[in-house]
């Protein structure tokens, strides 16, 4: 009697706990669907062509857009990519092709640490090395902050994809008389091309939403920012400023900007993961 009661209890616990784990998953996935749904409905509703073509209007005046912020974000990402991707990629080549011993271990370890540095601390770093000596905010400073953030991810993803290239390819090309460098640059890297491009795209998508490192480096600007030496508006900072401001009209603009930013970020993510690197583990 007690035996069957115990068995019944065990079965009940089994079903109950398994259901709980299922519910956890439903909640976690439900949150994403809710976020996407809400942003799409709310953001798309207030989105119009002006958003992409007009400058922000002063408080109280309706209309206007964030054209300067979109261009500003593009400029920041361009600078960041020119800094972060070459350094990170070449360091990744070093780690995958020559990466043994204490030095390589130290580089990997420090890369992981750098990856974990809070983004706001990167902002302080760019502030102390650029804004402080120059005594003004600039697009450069913001771009450099984002660029440094890109390095660790670029290192890890390129190392991982290069390592996945079979050894036979390296040996084969060297047996045909290629030097080590020729083998790497003409055979190994082209073989890992898709993975590397995926890594670059995900990397850009990640930093494109970063706000904290821009607050006191590229700052903000209500007008067009000329060249790279002036402060510039950017989409994430605009979302922040508009969301915490007390004006209903600005909140709508914040939703539109959030919608545009999220569509870009998730679009790149889906494309890169599904099309370029199917079923491959992607480094974070």
């Amino acid at each position: 009697m007690t035996g069957s009661l115990l068995l019944w209890r065990r079965k009940a616990v089994n079903i109950a706990m398994l259901t709980v784990t299922g519910m956890c998953t439903v909640v976690a996935a439900g949150i994403l669907i809710f976020i996407l749904g809400y942003l799409f409905i709310h953001g798309a509703a207030s989105l119009n062509w002006n958003f992409f073509t007009k400058l922000p209007t002063p408080v109280g005046e309706t209309g206007g857009g964030m054209a300067n912020a979109i261009v500003g974000s593009a400029k920041l990402l361009l600078i960041a990519s020119f800094i972060g991707i070459p350094i990170g990629f070449l360091a990744g080549v070093y780690l995958s092709e020559f990466g043994e011993g204490v030095f390589a271990f130290a580089v990997r370890y420090v890369t992981d640490l750098l990856n974990g540095v809070p983004s706001i601390v990167m902002g302080i770093f760019a502030y102390t090395i650029i804004v402080l000596p120059q005594k003004h905010f600039s697009t450069w400073a913001g771009g450099i902050a984002l660029g440094v953030m890109m390095i660790p991810i670029a290192v890890r993803s390129s190392e991982e994809f290069l390592r996945a290239v079979p050894k036979a390819l390296r040996e084969g090309s060297m047996a045909l008389g290629a030097s080590r460098a020729q083998a790497i640059f003409t055979v190994v890297i082209p073989a890992a091309k898709n993975g590397i491009i995926t890594g670059v795209m995900l990397n850009i998508a990640r930093v494109s939403g970063e706000t904290a490192p821009l607050l006191f480096t590229s700052f903000s600007n209500r007008y067009w920012s000329e060249g790279l030496n002036q402060p510039t508006a950017s989409l994430p900072v605009m979302i922040y400023t508009y969301a915490v401001a007390p004006y209903e009209d600005w909140h709508q603009q914040a939703w539109s900007a959030g919608f545009v930013l999220l569509t870009l970020v998730l679009g790149v993510n889906v494309f890169a993961r599904l099309v370029l690197a199917r079923n491959r583990h992607v480094a974070r």
Binding site: A28, A29, I31, L32, I33, I35, L39, L202, A205, R206, S208, G209, E210, T211, A212, P236, I239, Y240, A243, A254, W255, G258, L261, L262, V265, L266, N269, V270, R273, V282, R284
Partner: peptide, 15 residues
Amino acid sequence: LIELLAAVPSVIYGL
């Protein structure tokens, strides 16, 4: 889907 959740920028969560 859940990996995508990790890609959503912080400022959007704030919003």
